[in-house]
Design a binder for these strands. Structure first.
Lengths: 205, 205
DNA sequence: TAGATTGTTAATCGATTAACAATC
DNA sequence: TAGATTGTTAATCGATTAACAATC
C-alpha cells in the first residue's frame, strides 16, 4: 500500500465535489479526470492528483477511473460510511434547520439537542443545557454543534470541552478559544456573505 | 494613493477576524500586529501584510495601528457600511434562520422571501415564486439566496439569473451552473461538516 | 537612547500546472 | 497502430515567512 501525504484543506474541499459529480454519472463504467475537470472548471492534472490521494485503485490509461470503485473509495476516504453521533446546543431556527437537514449523508447524526429553554421546538425533544455533560458522557459523544447567540457561545463551548466533546462546529460569529487538541470549524455566515459581496463588487466595477 | 493588488481569498477571510478582534479592543488607542497575531494564532507579518491591503492609513512604528481609524478602514474595505438588498428563495427552517439572523451587520438586508408555498412561515410575508422576477426587477435587487431542496435549486438559480440577480449564495448541496459573469458562493454544510470530522479523525488516530 | 514595531525586499514553502514517457 | 488518458518528475506560481533598515 502506497504511503499517502496528508491531504490539503483545498483538496479536501474538492473531493466532495468530485464525488457528487461522479455519482451523477454512475451509469458510466469509466470516468476520466479530463471529463470531471472540464465539467467542474478545474485542471485535469489537479483532479488526478486529488484522486490519487483519496483512492487506492488507479486509473486506466485511455479510459479513466472505474466509477463503481472510486465512488466507494472516495466515500471511504472521506469517512462517509461512518456514522458520527453529535449533539447540538441552541434550538433556535438555525439549530432546527440543522436538526432537520437532509443533506448529511447519514454521516452526521445529530442525536440530541439542548437549549436553556427546553420548549423551544415543538416537534423534537430538547434537553436542558444542564443535562449535557451527563448525557454526552453516557453516550460517549465527541462532536458538538453550537447554534446559540454569540454571547453564550464561549460558555457553551467550555461546557462541551469539559464534557469530553472533541470536535466543535461553531455557527456563532465569534472567535472561540479551545484547547489545541480540540478540532474547531467555524461556520461564519457573515464572512461567507462578505466574500460573495466582494466578488460581486469586483466583477461589477 | 498607493495602488493595491487584488486581495486573496485567504486574506479576505482573515480580515473579518481581525476586525472582530480589534473591535473587542476599541478601548485601546493603538493596536499592534504582534498583539493581533498572537491572540489569533497567526504570523504578525501576515497580519501587517493583510492590513496594508485593506487600510489606507499606515501603522506607527513602535506603537501599531490607530484602532479608531483601522476599524473604519477595514469596514470600508469590506463594504460593511453599504446596505446590500437581497432576496431569499426557500422559506424552510434554514431560510427562516437566515431571515432572522442577527449577525449580518445590516450589511446584508434580506428584503423579501419567496417559496412555492406562500404560507410556509407565519411571522413573515412570503411571496409566491412566480412573483420573483417582477419584484426583483422593480426593486433592482442583485443578490439572491437559495435555501430550497437540492432538486429545485438549479431551477431557482435559473429564475434568479434571468431576473437580473448577479450574486447567488447557495445553500443547496449541488453544483449550480451559472454564467461566468455571475458571482456564486456555495455554502456547503455537508462539506464543512466533513472537514471538521476529517480533522477530528486526524487528531485522534 | 533603547525597545518596540513598522513596511519592504528577498527567501521559503506549498500547491498547481506543464511536460512526457508509459499504458490501455 | 492511433488516440486518449494515466501517473510522475520538474517547473511555475502564489502565498507565507524571514531578514532588516527605518521610525516612533
Amino acid at each position: 500500500m502506497k504511503s499517502k501525504e496528508l491531504i490539503s484543506q483545498a483538496a479536501l474541499k474538492r473531493l466532495p465535489q468530485y464525488l457528487r459529480f461522479i455519482k451523477e454519472h454512475n451509469d458510466l463504467e469509466f470516468i476520466s479526470s479530463t471529463f470531471i475537470a472540464k465539467e467542474l472548471g478545474l485542471n485535469p492534472i489537479l483532479v488526478r492528483k486529488d484522486l490519487s490521494l483519496a483512492c487506492t485503485s488507479e486509473g486506466k490509461p485511455g479510459n479513466g477511473f472505474e466509477v463503481r470503485k472510486i465512488i466507494i473509495e472516495i466515500e471511504e476516504f472521506l469517512g462517509l460510511n461512518k456514522v458520527n453521533n453529535a449533539i447540538i446546543v441552541g434550538a433556535g431556527k438555525l439549530g432546527q434547520a440543522l436538526l432537520n437537514y437532509q443533506g448529511f449523508n447519514s454521516n452526521l447524526n445529530i442525536e440530541m439537542a439542548f437549549d436553556v429553554d427546553e420548549n423551544k421546538c415543538d416537534n423534537k425533544k430538547i434537553f436542558k443545557l444542564e443535562k449535557l455533560k451527563n448525557l454526552v458522557q453516557n453516550k460517549n459523544i465527541k462532536i458538538g454543534i453550537i447554534t446559540v447567540p454569540k454571547e453564550e457561545a464561549q460558555n457553551v463551548c467550555d461546557i462541551m470541552v469539559s464534557s469530553g466533546i472533541m470536535a466543535i462546529w461553531n455557527f456563532a460569529p465569534i472567535n472561540l478559544k479551545v484547547p489545541e487538541n480540540i478540532s474547531l470549524k467555524n461556520e461564519d455566515l457573515t464572512t461567507s456573505a462578505l466574500i460573495l459581496l466582494k466578488d460581486f463588487y469586483n466583477k461589477n466595477k
